[in-house]
């Protein structure tokens, strides 16, 4: 959905065509579910939180003035609600085995595939050790291609603060992955 199209849709919803809201839900639910699952870790809780995010967004739609993209605005709600959820729930570590394995058919070398699999596991476990706010940052930046500026708007931090936090996380992740990356990528 293009930005102008989305803004027009939001205006129509604000004017009373509330049945159109399911189009926004369908369009944004994959990304919202993805980021919330990454932060909350429990699948059932993540789906509950994702539903609540869209409900809250619906009732707060009048406050959306289009200064940022709807996705950024929605991510802001997602950030606040997922962090609140993690605070209210005991920390759960989801084992790596529950995550679908990536079948990398691009390389015929079994060693590379196995090593890559190990790297993904190490990275996953490293992300598990991060606090929820940092996990949100990492997943927004790497998985959802949010820029530093967008992340600063979402998390209500300065851009420099976001850069510092990302740099710290990246340093930590790189220490764990280390030179093994060169093995995977030649």
């Amino acid at each position: 959905m293009k930005k102008e199209e989305e803004l027009r849709l939001i205006e129509r919803i604000k004017e009373g065509e509330t049945s159109l809201y399911n189009q926004l839900v369908s369009h944004h639910s994959p990304k919202i579910l993805s980021i919330v699952r990454g932060v909350v870790r429990n699948r059932e809780d993540a789906e509950e939180v994702a539903q609540d995010i869209f409900v809250k967004a619906y009732f707060s739609l009048k406050g959306f003035r289009g200064e940022c993209s709807f996705s950024t605005w929605l991510f802001r709600i997602a950030y606040n609600m997922s962090i609140s959820k993690t605070r209210s729930k005991k920390k759960i570590n989801v084992p790596y085995e529950n995550i679908e394995q990536l079948q990398d058919n691009s390389s015929s070398d079994i060693d590379i595939i196995e090593e890559r699999e190990k790297m993904v596991k190490i990275l996953y476990e490293a992300i598990e050790t991060l606090d929820p706010g940092d996990r949100f940052l990492v997943l927004s930046f790497y998985n959802h291609n949010k820029s530093i500026r967008e992340i600063s708007e979402i998390c209500r931090m300065s851009e420099s603060n976001v850069k510092v936090r990302l740099h710290r996380i990246k340093k930590r992740l790189s220490l764990l992955i280390g030179d093994k990356i060169d093995f995977c990528y030649g």
Partner: peptide, 18 residues
């Protein structure tokens, strides 16, 4: 490199009836 390793963790499946 980190991005390519993180992408398997990304689960965008939407449950039925969401």
């Amino acid at each position: 490199n980190i991005k390519s390793l993180i992408s398997p963790i990304n689960d965008e499946t939407v449950p039925f009836g969401f």
